[in-house]
């Protein structure tokens, strides 16, 4: 019995000691946390962090002047993100800041973002402007503006310029034609295809977006589109398209060979058949990189039908195109006559 008692005591002791250790440990952790919190929630710490971040953004801004132009877009993107983050930090800290501090912070934030905007307008003029300029053969204008040194004037000029030129890119009112849009023509543009009948349209390169409306018996072959494709009133068409989003409305009897990196939706559509994107051309991989679309992410079966909200039963308005019915070689494909 004694032996048992002894053992029992021993275990109780052990357990008690452990319990004590555990409590001490918790207390210690709590203390650390408290100190940490207090450290982060005082004005000195805030000021230090804020100044450091601000300096970092300013350095980024300055380095943009000497940066390779192809990286600039991303660079400015990052800067604006950083500014936004800093802004959030100020917002989160305003509990323990004085009104004056908040005011000063807001002022410097505003200065930063306006500086970023100015710089961006200066070193990264809108692409289409540069392109237009070349075709219009009027480079001296740019020089003049630079001499005046008014970055703002340049922008104003640029905007007016765009409005005068309607900048229409695409085709409308065509019947029985085969048309090709080349890389340089569509880069970052909004391509419109409208009122086409029995046409084959090939688009190489990376448009920013495509609008299609009233297409009949058409074949559309397109390189990767960096944002959305919006299609309406298409009948009896084949679309071979890659994009971030597809929005299909009021269409019927359309075969879509699709690469979509987010999701596609359809509304008021009937007899839509879907297959994976299978268009191939030279330089396609490069175009995918340029467009920012991931060539390996294709959610071609992720289609939401606004007229069919039941998730358990497949929508009757679309289906997957059977493999044997798919067209595999678009270069030797011709539209069925009639």
């Amino acid at each position: 019995m004694d032996f048992m008692q002894e053992r029992c005591d021993k275990i109780t002791n052990l357990l008690n000691r452990r319990e004590l250790e555990r409590k001490l440990d918790i207390e210690k952790k709590r203390e650390n946390k408290r100190q940490g919190l207090a450290e982060h929630e005082n004005i000195d710490f805030f000021e230090k962090t804020f100044t450091a971040k601000k300096l970092e953004i300013e350095n980024d801004l300055n380095s943009s002047l000497t940066m390779d132009s192809s990286k600039l877009a991303n660079h400015f993107d990052m800067i604006s993100k950083n500014i936004l983050n800093l802004q959030k930090y100020v917002a989160a800290s305003n509990l323990f800041l004085r009104t004056y501090d908040i005011k000063v912070c807001h002022q410097s934030l505003q200065e930063l973002s306006s500086k970023a905007r100015e710089l961006e307008e200066k070193v990264l003029p809108k692409k289409k402007f540069g392109f237009k300029k070349k075709t219009m053969k009027s480079p001296p204008k740019h020089e003049d503006i630079k001499l005046n040194g008014h970055a703002k004037d340049e922008v104003d000029f640029c905007r007016r310029f765009i409005n005068l030129n309607d900048n229409f890119c695409g085709y409308e009112n065509k019947i029985n034609e085969t048309l090709v849009l080349e890389n340089s023509k569509v880069f970052k543009k909004d391509v419109t295809l409208k009122d086409l009948e029995c046409c084959v349209i090939k688009i190489y390169g990376t448009p920013s977006t495509i609008h299609m409306n009233h297409l009949k018996n058409c074949l559309i072959l397109s390189g990767p589109v960096s944002t959305s494709i919006f299609a309406e009133n298409c009948t009896n068409c084949k679309l071979v398209i890659a994009c971030q989003q597809l929005r299909l409305h009021s269409s019927s009897d359309v075969h879509i060979y699709l690469h979509v990196t987010s999701r596609a939706i359809m509304e008021d559509c009937k007899r839509i058949l879907i297959a994976p994107y299978n268009y191939k051309y030279d330089g396609m991989e490069d175009d995918f990189i340029k467009s920012g679309l991931d060539i390996n992410t294709n959610n071609w079966t992720s289609i939401d039908d606004f007229n069919w909200l039941n998730t358990e039963i497949q929508s009757p308005n679309w289906n997957i195109l059977k493999e044997i019915e798919r067209v595999n070689d678009w270069n030797n494909f011709s539209l069925p006559s009639g």
Binding site: N163, F168, K189, S208
Partner: peptide, 8 residues
Amino acid sequence: QDLPGACS
């Protein structure tokens, strides 16, 4: 407004 042809 980043697209060419956008209305002002």
